[in-house]
Design a protein around this nucleic acid. Structure first.
Lengths: 129, 129
DNA sequence: AATATAAGTCTCATTTAGAGACCAAAATCG
DNA sequence: CGATTTTGGTCTCTAAATGAGACTTATATT
């Protein structure tokens, strides 16, 4: 969308508002990361090891599991701990901040579950026309 | 991740739990759609036309704006109304359900804003090591 | 007369995600 | 004893999702 008038954007820039670093976007990107929320939800059941998480979330690829866990670790939502077993095992757990994220996340889930029938109805309506 | 033990998944399947149609995943996918939440947030300011939305969200492409709006319309969160002007204009607005989604969304945003400093700190820590 | 606007669609290029092979060392299985 | 499994990943190759931008058609503006 490059054919915009730029006025509002220019205004924001003038105000020193950094569009790319907008905190709202950053969280939404996080929630939007498709797997991170599911991982956090799974870790609510307690610390889990890499492969156990993979089994709990059967349709995630190892690649994305690794990447999502790194992102979560970097942002301080998840802690990674290596145990010196043979072979070495790695446990992932929620940090306090990670746990605090579950509260708003559960709000979303409650909303989702209560609205699902309406959403289904809307879809059926939309699809038939 | 095809090398899983399948036990938990099998269990779920035995329970008739349809993994792909899980409502939690469906909403999270929605929130995870990268643009839908931003669009809903923008429509909180009142109904807006296609190009106006494009200007308000400068880094979305027309292609994704169209697609996201269709998804939101299909799920009943957004209403699309065509006006017979010349050239015809189209207004998008929140439905009641769309508005109700803003509540849990705002919870997430509040969380995001309050946690941002901690997240930044965690990132700085992670990146330096 | 040329350009802009409305709301998209379409194509092509780039980015992101998924599938699965591969790693090394130790434990387990037959 | 040899084969397989398990640990937590990485790497490559393919497939899917996204972005950039040209194009449309009729009217209005400059």
């Amino acid at each position: 969308m490059r054919d915009m008038q730029l006025s509002r954007l220019e205004e924001w820039k003038a105000m020193g508002f950094d569009f790319q670093n907008c905190p709202v976007r950053q969280v939404l990107d996080h929630v939007a990361a498709k797997w991170t929320s599911l991982i956090l939800l799974e870790l609510e059941n307690g610390p889990q090891r890499f492969n156990a998480l993979g089994r709990a979330l059967p349709d995630i690829s190892k690649r994305m599991l690794t990447q999502s866990l790194r992102d979560l670790e970097r942002d301080g939502l998840v802690a990674r701990e290596v145990f010196d077993t043979k072979p070495p095992s790695v446990a992932y757990s929620l940090t306090d901040m990670g746990r605090s994220f579950l509260e708003p996340l559960h709000h979303m889930i409650v909303w989702a579950e209560s609205m699902m029938p309406q959403v289904e109805a809307a879809r059926a309506q939309f699809d038939k026309s």
